[in-house]
Design a protein around this nucleic acid. Structure first.
Lengths: 129, 129
DNA sequence: TCAATGCATACTAATTAAGTAGGATTAAAA
DNA sequence: TTTTAATCCTACTTAATTAGTATGCATTGA
């Protein structure tokens, strides 16, 4: 029950951009401490761009900037972009037929999922600066 | 951001035992629908035994039973036994030095972790019968 | 003693996460 | 117009984790 490094890297990159908003920064600048592969981060940010959380400028002197103000961005939406939907258990498929019906346990996963979403969508990017 | 099948199987087994509490049941009975490897479930339940959530009787006609009443057992403790501690991000180690300090993000992971625990420890096994 | 059960350990397979490589595309600057 | 520095795209490789299997030992009631 963990978030992956994608959530960590993605969020860190966004915080980094938020600190200098609305400045535009290149990948190299964003990952300047070199503790992470530039290429890997590049792809992550690209996904954030495709989901319209960041804007990009191609070509020389290009880079990235936030697509909206940090106060309008929720941690939850960032994480869902890089990690996929927040659902703590995929209750579909063959496995769910085992033992008895799993109707009782769905209650558990749903409650947990709701709480996680509530928490993550309750934190603004601007809260982390 | 998902729980593994260990949480699913473990919880289902416990619900199964809870339904007939305080009866004793063998692994075969617990997993009677055969949608899961008996051996795999055996090991899972063994871990629950070592953590004193179930009691076992070895030998012929042996089996398992809950170590306490379903109303005294929390879903959270079951899941932590089979899945390990509920912490949504391991903020230790080299990676945490990347980009800037990660002090701001720790707030996020801590909040989420607390909410998940609160939710899971707020559900009794007896609530799932 | 036999058979049915739990217990322990090691091994293998499958899946997912993480990281790497190479080059195409774009646009500013020289 | 050429060079250069940046994003964008796709495929591949490696590492880590999860899931499942196999084998045999230990225990106990019939």
């Amino acid at each position: 029950m963990k978030f992956s490094t994608r959530a960590e890297y993605g969020l860190k990159a966004m915080v980094n951009l938020a600190k200098d908003h609305p400045a535009q920064k290149s990948i190299k600048e964003i990952s300047k401490s070199k503790e992470i592969s530039v290429k890997y981060l590049e792809r992550l940010i690209n996904e954030l761009r495709k989901s319209d959380l960041v804007k990009s400028q191609r070509g020389k002197n290009g880079g990235y900037m936030l697509a909206k103000k940090p106060s309008l961005m929720k941690v939850g939406e960032i994480i869902e972009v890089v990690e996929g939907p927040i659902v703590p258990m995929n209750c579909a498929g063959k496995k769910c037929a085992m033992l008895n019906k799993c109707s009782s346990q769905i209650v558990v996963w749903n409650k947990v999922g709701e709480q996680i979403k509530k928490t993550l969508y309750g934190i603004k990017l601007s809260d982390l600066i």
